[in-house]
Simulated assay, not measured.
Amino acid sequence: MTPSHQHTPHHGERGQAEILDLDAEVLAEHTASITAWLPLKSEPRRIVDLGCGTGAGTFALLERFPDAHVTAVDTSAGHLQLLREKACARGTERRVRTVQADLDSDSWPDLGTPDLVWASASMHHMADPDRALTGVRELLAPGGLFAIVELAGFPRFLPPGAPESRPGLEERAHAATDSFHAEHVPHRGADWGPMLTAAGFTVEGERTVTVTIEGGRSEAVGRYAYGSLQRVRGAAAPALSPEDLAALDELLDISSPTSLLRREDLAVRTERTVWAARRA
């Protein structure tokens, strides 16, 4: 889903891949609704998934457009290998090409002339978003569509009064990561509409979807919360009080009776915004 996925320091690629897979599983229904909403003039045959991660968008697009072929692009060889394995398991390997590329480089590899470019949770990682937008505009076939999908920050999982020992801990942990994210992912939460217009696109649709998924609906929610807050801890730890850090560690201790994995009051709460733009 992103070119680098570096939300927090010292987080291994395997852990990133696991979070991406959980993200895909938990948000699958919402991803499908976005692919169905896209203001397309005809069904795309050639699709590029920029910053594809382990394939959440790739497989949603293959399912939505059964005659399409997807070129999946990411910097991570490990993520692309996982994507290829999934394609083989699903019998869609002939409809997927993987390309390892750094989208922040001066020149992109040949990605064909796609009818649709999809970028989910990847544009905010670009070091130079304006250059990346120009690259997409030059890539697209005439009349082609560019879809940017972004989460409004990190999902929230705990109810406001939790944990009982330190109510409001989750919000304080996220606040403690603000300076890290301001430095490393300054475009997170950006409004892509004006940037798309400036890059020579016409924005044809913008939609914000409020996401609320109760933990009871999917056991993956607990694992998603656990992996996500593990990542938050890496960036938040230096700025958290000792009491908050201890409470966070207790939530992340799988042997603790109050572990996140044992809670029954978790939910995924976030917003997803999608911008659909055409070459002007």
Results as ranks from 00 to 15, higher is better:
T31M: 00
T31R: 12
A32V: 03
A32H: 07
S33W: 06
S33K: 14
S33C: 13
S33R: 15
S33D: 15
I34K: 04
I34H: 04
I34F: 08
T35W: 01
T35I: 08
T35L: 10
T35C: 07
T35Q: 00
T35R: 00
T35A: 11
A36Q: 12
A36M: 03
A36F: 02
A36R: 11
A36L: 06
W37K: 04
W37L: 03
L38D: 07
L38C: 09
L38G: 06
P39Y: 02
P39T: 03
P39W: 04
P39Q: 02
P39E: 00
P39K: 04
P39I: 03
L40Y: 07
L40M: 10
L40D: 08
K41A: 07
K41H: 07
K41I: 03
K41W: 02
S42T: 10
S42P: 00
S42W: 06
S42A: 13
E43Y: 07
E43G: 08
E43R: 12
E43V: 07
P44V: 04
P44L: 01
P44C: 01
P44D: 01
P44K: 00
P44Q: 00
P44I: 00
R45C: 09
R46I: 04
R46N: 07
R46P: 04
R46C: 03
R46S: 09
I47K: 01
I47W: 00
I47R: 02
I47A: 04
I47E: 00
I47V: 14
V48D: 01
D49L: 02
D49I: 03
D49M: 01
D49F: 03
D49C: 07
D49A: 04
D49S: 06
L50F: 14
L50M: 15
L50W: 09
L50S: 11
G51Y: 09
G51D: 08
G51L: 05
G51I: 13
G51A: 13
C52Q: 09
C52T: 14
C52K: 09
C52E: 05
G53F: 05
G53D: 05
G53S: 13
G53I: 08
G53N: 10
G53K: 10
G53R: 06
G53P: 11
T54L: 10
T54E: 11
T54F: 06
T54R: 11
T54G: 11
G55Y: 11
G55D: 07
G55M: 06
G55L: 05
A56V: 10
A56G: 15
G57S: 14
G57I: 14
G57A: 14
T58D: 05
T58L: 03
T58K: 01
T58H: 08
F59I: 10
F59G: 06
F59C: 04
F59M: 09
A60S: 10
A60M: 00
A60W: 02
A60P: 00
L61M: 15
L61A: 15
L62T: 14
L62D: 09
L62E: 13
E63T: 13
E63A: 13
R64I: 12
R64W: 09
F65A: 07
F65L: 12
F65K: 03
P66F: 13
P66H: 11
P66I: 12
P66E: 13
D67E: 13
D67P: 03
D67L: 12
D67I: 05
D67S: 07
D67W: 07
